[in-house]
């Protein structure tokens, strides 16, 4: 082991030469590449920062717009609610009006129906009563009662003659009398009645014929032309029933 100046010097020079070689071939290019990459990274970071700032700004804008939209939405909801409330009230009023009309109509219909039912009930009642009265009177009807009615008729002959004369006028030359009786009255009685009437209407020739009709119960019904003079019990009951229907009053009743 000895010191060799040339080796020492060469090695020192070698180091310095290699230092310069490596500066040119290694350190400088690699440093440039690293710097370039760092610049790119820095730029990317700056871009990312800018993008982040932009995103934050846009987020703020969007949040502001969202708040405005929320307010607008609340206003719209309130307005819609008010309009719906108004519409609801209007519809309610319309419905109430319609319901009132319908109720009125139904009430009128009900009243009419009630009235009709009442009248029908009354009619039926009158029919039943009439029918019962007829049945009762049929049971108690007799020839004597018939004669009694007949006698009353003869006593009322003046009134009948006046009516015949009034309704047919003085120009009528003959009148055919159709006498319906519940019980036979006989030709003699019939002729007697004709002659009594004839004497009261001298200008007119009267003829009479008897027709038996048990439905009359008792009494007589006289038809002169198109006029009918009913003195039968059935006729009286029918007149009474008609009075009951129309007048709603019962003669002699409370």
């Amino acid at each position: 082991m000895r010191f060799d100046f040339w080796t020492f010097s060469f090695q020192a020079i070698n180091f310095i030469v290699l230092l310069f070689i490596l500066k040119g071939l290694l350190y400088k290019p690699v440093r440039e590449i690293l710097e370039k990459r760092r610049d790119i990274s820095r730029k990317i970071l700056e871009d990312a920062e800018m993008a982040r700032d932009e995103a934050l700004r846009m987020k703020e804008v969007q949040e502001r717009e969202m708040k405005n939209l929320q307010v607008m939405k609340a206003d719209l909801i309130e307005q819609s609610r008010r309009e719906a409330e108004g519409e609801r009230k209007k519809l309610l009023l319309d419905a109430q009006g319609s319901a009132k009309d319908i109720i009125e109509k139904e009430r009128a219909l009900f009243e009419a129906e009630k009235k009709r039912a009442g009248e029908e009930t009354e009619n039926r009642s009158v029919k039943i009563v009439t029918s019962m009265a007829c049945s009762l009177l049929k049971d108690i009807s007799s020839e004597a009662l018939n004669k009694s009615v007949w006698q009353n008729l003869i006593s009322e002959a003046g009134t009948i003659a006046k009516n015949i004369s009034g309704s047919h006028g003085p120009s009528a030359s003959s009148i055919d009398l159709e006498v319906r009786t519940a019980w036979p009255i006989g030709d003699t009685e019939l002729e007697k009645f004709r002659r009594t009437l004839q004497s009261m209407v001298p200008g007119t020739s009267l003829s009479a014929r008897e027709i038996a009709d048990k439905d009359l119960i008792a009494g007589v019904s006289i038809k002169a032309g198109d006029k009918v003079y009913d003195f039968s019990l059935a006729g009286q009951i029918e007149a009474f029933a008609s009075k009951l229907k129309t007048g709603r009053t019962i003669p002699g009743g409370q």
Partner: peptide, 9 residues
């Protein structure tokens, strides 16, 4: 000599 050269540097 080499190591001394490097050490001197």
């Amino acid at each position: 000599n080499t190591t001394f050269a490097f050490a001197a540097l």
